Simulated assay, not measured.
Amino acid sequence: MFCEDDVAMVLAERQTPNHVLHLLLSIFSAGFWIPVWLAVTMLASGTYKCPRCGARTRAYVPRKFKAALAAKSIP
């Protein structure tokens, strides 16, 4: 993934809900936690973020950054 803020290719991350925790809360609350679990899962951020700066990443390098990225990688 490409980070526009760092002008670099990064290994992007995305946060997902902790399903084991929500399962345990659903069991201990006799199922009352299930609507909350569904809402958290549906509203979870599906975007990948840069681990260095937290900015949204892209799956491709935009044209305006290709020259800068090429210049950065040349020693």
Rank of each mutant, 00 (worst) to 15 (best):
E4P: 09
C50H: 02
G46D: 09
A39L: 14
A12G: 08
R52C: 07
A39H: 10
H22G: 06
E4T: 06
R56M: 09
P62M: 01
R58H: 14
G31V: 00
D5G: 07
K64T: 12
M1D: 12
P75T: 14
A55Q: 07
N18I: 03
A70L: 08
E4R: 10
S26K: 02
R58A: 10
S73R: 11
V40T: 09
A44P: 03
N18P: 08
E13W: 08
G46I: 01
H22F: 12
A70K: 08
L11A: 15
A8W: 00
R56E: 13
R63Q: 15
R14V: 03
A70G: 03
M1H: 14
N18C: 04
C53K: 05
R52K: 13
R14P: 05
A59C: 06
F2G: 01
A39E: 05
C3A: 03
V40W: 05
R56T: 14
V40E: 08
E4N: 07
L43Q: 09
I34E: 04
D6W: 02
G54L: 00
V36G: 08
K64I: 10
F28Y: 09
R63V: 11
N18F: 04
C3K: 02
Y60W: 09
Y48V: 04
S73W: 04
W37Y: 09
E13C: 06
A39V: 12
M42N: 13
L69V: 06
L21C: 08
V7Y: 02
D5R: 15
E13T: 11
L25M: 13
L21S: 07
T57Y: 00
D6F: 02
A30K: 06
R52I: 12
A44S: 11
S45E: 14
S73M: 08
V40L: 15
R52T: 14
V7C: 06
R14Q: 09
L38W: 11
V10C: 02
P62C: 05
K72V: 01
L11Y: 15
Q15N: 13
F32C: 11
E13K: 13
V36I: 15
K72I: 01
D6P: 03
R52N: 11
